[in-house]
């Protein structure tokens, strides 16, 4: 029964030219939809992201020289002082962004997925792919310590005082 129907005139294959026009219509509709969708997809990615200044003043320089380690919890970092000068280690775990705890001599521990770092911030265990970030330190003209939370520096860089 279905064969009869397919062989009847209504079910004959369309002529080639009609096929072309039909395909052209379908494809142009598809392309129009696709381009419109792509254009709309541009909307959720703004040209400028809302951000606060990554450089922050932490306080007068001498206060950080008094102790070998000063925690700055609101900016999620520690300021260290050694003989060569000052350096800052970020507390943000390089694995998935949790805040590591500072165990002093025992190094750093991440509470979320168990990454461990030694006192220098090098990965010793767990899933973290990179060492903890060392952040750039500067001194502002008014004598305050300034950290740039997005500028990474080498682990041997010190702010000489």
């Amino acid at each position: 029964m279905s064969n009869d129907l397919q062989q009847s005139e209504r079910f004959q294959a369309p002529k080639e030219r009609r096929d072309f026009l039909g395909l052209a219509a379908l494809w142009s509709a598809a392309v129009a939809l696709g381009v419109a969708t792509l254009g709309a997809m541009r909307l959720p990615m703004p040209s400028v992201f809302p951000e606060s200044n990554s450089r922050v003043k932490l306080g007068p320089l001498p206060s950080f020289l008094a102790s070998s380690m000063t925690p700055i919890p609101e900016h999620r970092l520690w300021i260290y002082a050694d003989k060569a000068g000052l350096y800052a280690i970020s507390a943000i775990c390089t694995h998935l962004g949790c805040i590591v705890t500072n165990g002093g001599e025992k190094g750093f521990h991440c509470p979320c997925h168990g990454s461990r770092f030694d006192v220098q911030g090098q990965v010793t265990q767990g899933p973290a792919p990179k060492p903890l970030m060392y952040l750039q330190l500067r001194v502002s003209p008014d004598g305050q310590l300034v950290v740039d939370k997005q500028a990474e520096v080498g682990a041997d860089v010190r702010l000489k005082v």
Binding site: P73, E74, R76, C98, I99, T101, P111, C112
Partner: peptide, 9 residues
């Protein structure tokens, strides 16, 4: 609290 995650989180 962006400064301290729960432990364990």
């Amino acid at each position: 609290n962006p400064a301290v995650p729960e432990n364990p989180a």
